[in-house]
Design a protein around this nucleic acid. Sequence first.
DNA 1: TCACGTCTGTACGGCGCCACACATATCTTT
DNA 2: AAAGATATGTGTGGCGCCGTACAGACGTGA
Lengths: 241, 241
Amino acid sequence: MMTVANPKQNHLLDALLIGEFSRLLPNLEHIELPLGKVLYESGGTLDHVYFPTTSIISLLYVMENGAAAEIAVVGNEGILGISLFMGGETTSSRAVVQSAGYAYRLKAQLLKDEFNRGGPVQRLLLRYTQALITQMAQTAVCNRHHTVEQQLCRWLLLSLDRLASDELTMTQELIANMLGVRREGVTEAAGRLQREGIINYSRGHIAVLNRKALEKRSCECYKVVKAEFDRLLPALHGIAT
Amino acid sequence: MMTVANPKQNHLLDALLIGEFSRLLPNLEHIELPLGKVLYESGGTLDHVYFPTTSIISLLYVMENGAAAEIAVVGNEGILGISLFMGGETTSSRAVVQSAGYAYRLKAQLLKDEFNRGGPVQRLLLRYTQALITQMAQTAVCNRHHTVEQQLCRWLLLSLDRLASDELTMTQELIANMLGVRREGVTEAAGRLQREGIINYSRGHIAVLNRKALEKRSCECYKVVKAEFDRLLPALHGIAT
DNA sequence: TCACGTCTGTACGGCGCCACACATATCTTT
DNA sequence: AAAGATATGTGTGGCGCCGTACAGACGTGA
């Protein structure tokens, strides 16, 4: 399943390495990210940035009472740690490994220096950030207007795109945490999808049997976000099928 | 009420003008923004950026079926048109004048050139963008977890901060559009606040009588967003009381 | 194999918001 | 002063999600 480690597995990193950025190649660490690992804590400082290859990272916004919701996901199309070069020094959200896998890691200062040189590296990172902003905005509206089932479909599709696979390891409980809803709500929605033969799951393993149908049940948010990523980062096709 | 036009009325612009940016001073146009004017349409290109002084601009995300929700507001603390320098060329949200007033306008290319010089201008603009991202993330979570009344309080407070006033001109219908809820829901929430002597409104004019109480009824989202703006843009104090 | 932990299914009452309908109040225009 | 437009108040029924509780199904490890 897992091939030889290769920075090209992350499309953003791949695009960055075309230019002078490649001098950083020796500084890239290939590391394993277990499910549930917290990479950034809300309000904490950033020591590294991450370029996921086979993993997916969730950006969670946690509230005072503990309730949370996912505001964006980062997979093999992007980079985790944008607030580093945006200037905040700290991140305002928690970053959790949503799907176990691998990522390349880079010391924060190195990326920062490279960003501050300006040029194509900076431009690409900012374009990616713009795409991430779109995802966050869409999530905000989605939370307001769409049903749990629609959001579950959107979430599954976004995850699949970042795994280049048709199945993922994820309990309903965890999905509910991401979406900021009850576990039972996810169970019901997933049950409907399963009865209609769209997905198949058991104890933390979800297989998508009919992707087209899943897209149909999803709200528009999925395709809007995907379209914006494709538009802003055309060189990075392969984000999705 | 209205004093002589002065770029310092916008705190971000004020901070920018300290350095080399001041060469752009002659290119700033002071313009009037009537209520409801659409400055950017979703998917459109950006000809100008705006620095509101006495106006407030809403960033609305509109969906296919026409339903919408506000994802952020821009007032005298910031700039409208960040996607210009983020690289998208187009904006993914609609920008509507939520509170009539004035703003300074600058040709897009001029700001873009200045941004691309790097240095303090770029850093400041990126820090502001980071604060805006926080606002969007908080909005996403707020949409998921908080009641209409809490959100109404948050919305009123954010608006007040950007007007340096204790009243605003805004019908309940418009507020409902911003929050992405029914007008009746706003009526009920506002009615409760009025009965308790916290606010006073009539036909599009809302006066806040007891700001402390309003903050207490609001969800935490207001103060989190405010704290983040203060943290990232300390030079720009005066954003709120 | 048995006990235990984890994951999933189901049910009940309740609340918040929805869509829709309509009544009332206030301002504007003529 | 009358007529119209705009803004706000109220009600009814319904749906979706919540909080809670509990039962079964499936894995894992002793």
